[in-house]
């Protein structure tokens, strides 16, 4: 099953089970079914609860918050994650703050979905990974779709938090398979719906651990294969579903070398937050500071050969790890 189909099925299931669930977004109704077809079939099956809005990211996010405030379950789709900047006030100053700023817990069942990332030639304003702009907001949880996390369970986990969540969905992932074959590595599924999936060689301690976002997991996995075959470096991959708040991963084991991989461009990254958490917990046993692997400090160009130079890739992950461990 493709990741897109898993997401679509999860939304079907959510709207089917919860008669108070709504989906709002631009061009999401059938026959169009959303720019990336993730909402295909939903408006025909759940008329009146799947609503195409005008081009108003701020308003549709605010309306989702209003529905949640009234006790409904609200899913909003921002067509391109880049446009979540237009909903920043509603997310940060309204929805997230409302959960606690009135002196009590005011639960909001609300998820804002953001297709994100590059690799498809959409250019500087349609290719970003804006996760980092939403980190560190009290009452706002950040998730990312991964091929190792069933989205039925992830939606359940997000809504059970009772606070607004933003779900980033790497566009490149949509057409990739769920639970991709990882040989010779073995997948250990997450223990909780939004916990860490682990992909590693059976037995023994790896030379290093890679913590990678869902959208970069397949690149990290390909780099792990190359590192094993070409450099005899063993790595274990940890993939979270929830990026923020970031829980210290017990599955990191006895590792003393850690890399954090994400597609964000340089500066103020999620990886820096992860490194901070890890340094606080395991500084004494680290062989070197946690190393960040991400895209370049650049806007994301459109032409394929230029975009490729900027975005994090299998080879840039491979290079960074080989250089750190082999010099």
């Amino acid at each position: 099953m493709r990741v897109a189909d898993n997401l679509n099925a999860a939304l079907h299931d959510l709207l089917d089970r919860d008669p108070r669930a709504y989906l709002l977004g631009e061009d999401i109704t059938d026959q169009y079914g959303g720019a990336f077809k993730i909402s295909r079939g939903l408006s025909e099956r759940f008329p009146g609860r799947v609503l195409s809005t005008p081009i108003s990211e701020g308003a549709l996010t605010g309306m989702a918050a209003g529905l949640a405030l009234a006790g409904d379950t609200a899913i909003a789709e921002i067509m391109f994650g880049d446009f979540v900047t237009l909903a920043f006030d509603q997310l940060v100053n309204f929805a997230a703050k409302s959960v606690t700023m009135y002196g009590k817990r005011l639960p909001l069942r609300m998820v804002v979905r953001c297709p994100s990332g590059g690799g498809r030639g959409y250019g500087p304003t349609h290719s970003q990974s804006p996760q980092k702009h939403l980190l560190g907001v009290p009452g706002l949880a950040i998730y990312e779709v991964s091929p190792f996390h069933d989205n039925h369970a992830v939606f359940g986990a997000m809504l059970d938090r009772g606070e607004p969540c933003v779900l980033f969905e790497d566009k490149v992932l949509y057409t990739r398979p769920m639970y991709p074959a990882a040989e010779p590595f073995r997948l250990t599924p997450p223990e909780t719906p939004d916990g860490f999936a682990r992909v590693a060689l059976p037995g023994g301690d790896p030379d290093c651990v890679i913590i990678a976002t869902g959208g970069t997991a397949h690149k990290a996995l390909a780099a792990m294969r190359a590192l094993l075959l070409e450099d005899e470096i063993t790595a274990a991959l940890l993939v979270p579903s929830r990026l923020y708040p970031f829980d210290f991963p017990a599955a990191i084991g006895a590792a003393n070398t850690v890399f954090v991989v994400e597609e964000s461009t340089a500066g103020g990254t999620w990886g820096a937050e992860v490194a901070h958490v890890l340094h606080g917990r395991m500084w004494d046993r680290l062989a070197r500071p946690v190393q960040l692997v991400h895209s370049a400090d650049s806007i994301i160009p459109t032409a394929a050969h230029l975009e490729e130079r900027v975005l994090v890739s299998e080879s840039s992950i491979h290079r960074a790890i080989r250089k750190a461990l082999r010099g």
């Binding site: 709504y22 108003s56 701020g58 308003a59 549709l60 996010t61 605010g62 309306m63 989702a64 918050a65 209003g66 529905l67 949640a68 405030l69 009234a70 006790g71 409904d72 609200a74 006030d89 509603q90 100053n93 309204f94």
Partner: peptide, 12 residues
């Protein structure tokens, strides 16, 4: 900020 939220509540 409240107007979109009010519209969402009104939808409900």
């Amino acid at each position: 900020e409240s107007l979109p939220v009010a519209a969402g509540v009104a939808l409900h």
